[in-house]
Amino acid sequence: MTAPSATTDLPRPGYWPWFGAFAYLFLIGAQVMGLVTSVPDRDMGHLQKIMYVHVPAAWIMSLTFAVVLWYSFLYLWKQRENDDLKAAAAAEVGSAFCGLTLVLGMIWGRPAWGVWWTWDARLTSTLVLFLIFVGYLALRAFVEDPHRRAQWSAAVGIMGAINVPIVYMSVRWWRTLHQVQSSPATVDPWYVINLRANAFAFLFVMIYFIRQRYVASRFERAAELAAQAVALGRN
């Protein structure tokens, strides 16, 4: 149950604006480093640099699924509304990263494979995960009662997260049982360093985004709770 006193302990900015600035600067720095340091790939040329954002986006997207799972469980266990809002924030940010992964993958695939889309195992399973995210967000949009919405989306979030490895495995089998997938090994040390730098940059941005989205929904809820206090005559 929601205590009306929740209005008094709204999240404060604290050091978060600084963290946000740091995340953005880190992201810009990682991009600059990637462009400056790495030599053009033997096969792919400068196109290879898309991997610096595509791969970290995919990693971070998987991480947001874990965050959704974690807060969904926490909500069902403790029934704290804030956990539901955190799960929802993570799902929104996750679907953004998921969409980014897909678009970057397609931009890379067009010159690399000559087609915008290929039923590659990773790309395909990412698309399925994106659709699962979409379903989760659609459910939230179609259910108005906050308690029911929280309860249902926690269940859907958990089911979706359980399914992530199964989807990936099934799609990979579906591909590999028909054709062997080639994965070129890149040994350039700068490639690895840049990939990691970008992974951290995306991680910081993700944390900052989830935090900001969560704060926004807390303020929305606080406005509703203020209306409750007035309605109950307890102001």
């Binding site: 509703e224 409750q228 309605a231 109950l232 005559g233 307890r234």
Partner: peptide
């Protein structure tokens, strides 16, 4: 006991 549906309060502390 209080209950709201959306933004509308149907019970306001009973």
């Amino acid at each position: 006991v209080a209950r709201r549906f959306g933004a509308r309060w149907v019970l306001r502390g009973v």
